[in-house]
Amino acid sequence: MIGFDIVGFMISWLTLFGIYAILALTLNLESGTAGITNFGKVVFYGVGAYVSATLTAYLILILNGVDVSETPPYGIRGIILLGELGNKNPLLNIGLLVLSLVIAFAVSGVLGYLLTYPILRVGPAFVGFTLLSSGELLRIFLQHYEPVGASKGLMAIPTPFGWIADSRLREVTYLGLVLGLLAVTYVVTHRLVNSPLGRTLRALRDDEIAALCLGKHVPRIKATILFIGSGVAGMAGVLLTYYLTSVNPNMFVPAVTFNVWAMIILGGFGNLKGSLLGASVITFVDRVLTFVTPQLGIAAISPDYLRWVIVGLLIVVVLLVNPRGLLPEKPIRTPAVDVILEEFRGESK
């Protein structure tokens, strides 16, 4: 273990954990609590990532007086210019981060609503497959769409904290941003689940027909949840872009969606803390393999394959021991619980 950079490992793991945990929390709200089979999580994640990459690369060039029709950001010249111009103005960098987050939320959210509203009346399997194929359509579109770099994607995207000279400090600052957004996502999803809305979501997961007969506008409620979940997934995509400083279509394969599904299955369907746990375990495995295997000099086994074997094995073992995942779903906490407890206490007196 010579030269193993434990701090670097922790920063890398926690950043990746933060991004994936945001995806897992929102997927758990959509699929675990509301029962929508979202097999297209990667669509909204990818859209968010591309929104921020495109916005940042183009605006940095344009605002520095570069003619993007002559030197587009995906050309060699553009990539070099992005590196030169990218980190001159901290305020611009942070401004672009905020703008990216807002626009990514709006675009991914609206896409989530529009894509699902017409199909939510059909069965869960169809919803899953429609969203799954939407992801592939998006990827193939991006592969051939020149303004976002087609199959090469966009590179050398200036980061919000690129102006911080010390690389470690820069990484830690970024980690702070990621964990901050994760905290906000957790509070939001936790409050949504533990509210009358969360109760209604579980009700329509349990029996859609009965919910419909009790006056619930089932498609609208589900599409609203997908608006929220997809919008937040778009923000996670923004975080990914700035973390990797590049995007390309092959980052957004269906496997990303199933990786997030693995996290919520492992952690526990409908349990938000379980999503955090699932995300931490799976990203840990991923990081360990990425960090450790090259150092051990093992070339025979690619970490890419080993990752899936380990994740699959973990899921099988956990589900054999506890079919509901590591942490099962908890009852909803609303003031109604206090009222009934007061009632019971009053009776026993």
Binding site: S195, P196, L197, R199, T200, R202, A203, R205, D206, D207, I209, A210, A211, C213, L214, G215, E329, P331, I332, T334, A336, I340
Partner: peptide, 21 residues
């Protein structure tokens, strides 16, 4: 057709229209 993952009390609480939450 009841909501099986909810308690009896919660099953009743799903019903009311116009819940702010």
């Amino acid at each position: 057709r009841l909501f099986n993952s909810l308690t009896v009390l919660e099953n009743l609480l799903v019903t009311p229209l116009g819940q702010r939450g």
